[in-house]
């Protein structure tokens, strides 16, 4: 039995490492670019998983280009694609190809930054991609429910999504507009996210699909 973790950013890596340290078998993909076409993506996933049965899919994948801040009037069409549309396409391909691998009843969990829920100046492409992916997940949750496949999304703080990557991009991430400070004290985002994933995997989560849960310490509280 294998947990398939898709995404090469800091949070995806950390979730994979957490699972390994807990004794789980983990399959990872080391290059997001494999999701630029269906055939390569399918081959890469099958190669990563081997003969194992996939018991969980975690998708925490966004193109890091999207984290650089710029007004939309200052970017080229290629930059728009790099910062927004490429992540949308890769999410589609990743979900489509992961669906081919999983058995009935497998939970699929997406992890995304919380910025799409509120919008951030300078991060329009990222917010656009995040919201598109979030509702793409809802649509497939409806499609795959008949197979008891659950599809849920966890929202985390933007800096948390870039866990371990922040040193490379210091100064590029603006503060998320908030209604106030995080309600809860600092905690391990990996523990927080993995804890929710474990709920989705457990019988307690079997009726939960198409949901969007924030694990951002109460930074963004949706209406």
């Amino acid at each position: 039995m294998t947990a398939l973790v898709i995404g090469t950013g800091g949070l995806a890596r950390s979730i994979g490492e957490h699972f390994v340290s807990a004794g789980r078998s983990v399959a990872t993909i080391t290059a997001d670019a494999v999701f630029d076409d269906r055939v390569t993506a399918g081959d890469a996933l099958r190669s990563a998983v081997g003969d194992s049965v996939v018991e969980l899919v975690v998708l925490a994948q966004l193109d890091p280009a999207g984290f650089a801040t710029a007004p939309i009037t200052a970017i080229t069409e290629q930059q728009w694609d790099d910062t927004c549309e490429r992540s949308l396409r890769r999410a589609f391909i990743a979900l489509q190809q992961a669906h081919d691998l999983v058995a009935d009843g497998t939970p699929i969990v997406l992890v995304l930054p919380n910025v799409g829920a509120v919008g951030v100046a300078g991060l329009v492409p990222l917010c656009t991609a995040v919201e598109g992916i979030r509702v793409m997940a809802k649509a497939v949750a409806r499609r795959w429910g008949a197979r008891s496949i659950t599809v849920n999304t966890i929202g985390v703080e933007l800096a948390a999504f870039m866990l371990g990557d922040t040193e490379d991009r210091s100064g590029t991430v603006p503060p998320v507009p908030v209604l106030g400070s995080p309600a809860l004290p600092a905690s391990s985002v990996v523990d927080d996210v993995v804890g929710l994933i474990e709920v989705f995997e457990s019988p307690a989560g079997r009726a939960v699909t198409g949901a969007f849960l924030m694990a951002d310490r109460g930074t963004v509280m949706l209406p």
Partner: peptide, 27 residues
């Protein structure tokens, strides 16, 4: 907003517009 089973692409691109609206309104 709610996702449509028969229209997953349409759902995604229309949701993307909502993220765009929120962020661009601030920008």
């Amino acid at each position: 907003i709610e996702g449509s089973a028969p229209l997953p692409f349409y759902s995604a691109v229309k949701a993307a517009q909502r993220g765009f609206v929120r962020a661009l309104a601030r920008e």
